[in-house]
Amino acid sequence: MTRKFVIKFPAEQTGDSLTYNLIKKFDIRINILKADIDAGRSGTLLIELNAEEEKIQAAVDYISSQGMDISPVETKIKLEAEKCISCGACTSSCLSGALSISAPDWNLRFEPEKCIVCKLCLKACPLQLFKIEFSE
């Protein structure tokens, strides 16, 4: 399974040693999605962990034991609706049915609760109106 986390770590820690440890100790595939490091101060990492549930849990425990703050993240797709022209191009790749367009009004309808975050709409919208948003 794949889960996303935000990690806040103090200045003395670096992302590199963390990544190394996770791979080495827990056999977890780690993907750094975003890194914000404030020179000399604290930093934030957005990571994706890919492994079995128990391994992920063990890794999360390990990270907190190292004095870092780790919390799970929810990924959401966000649409800039005011710019949408209701062309419908995004609906062809949305197999979950979260994006739909139909009679009578033919305006794009977005039902986020149906979204499975497959991200296909990001490339399908010719106006690039979809963004990924992470929230804790």
Binding site: I85, S86, C87, G88, A89, T91, S92, L95, I101, S102, A103, D105, W106, N107
Partner: peptide, 25 residues
Amino acid sequence: LRSGEIEFQGKKIHTAPLSSLAKAR
């Protein structure tokens, strides 16, 4: 096409427009 699905070669295919009918109206 506007019904959202066409039947073709025994398959149901999901259809989607590319030009905006809402804007055209």
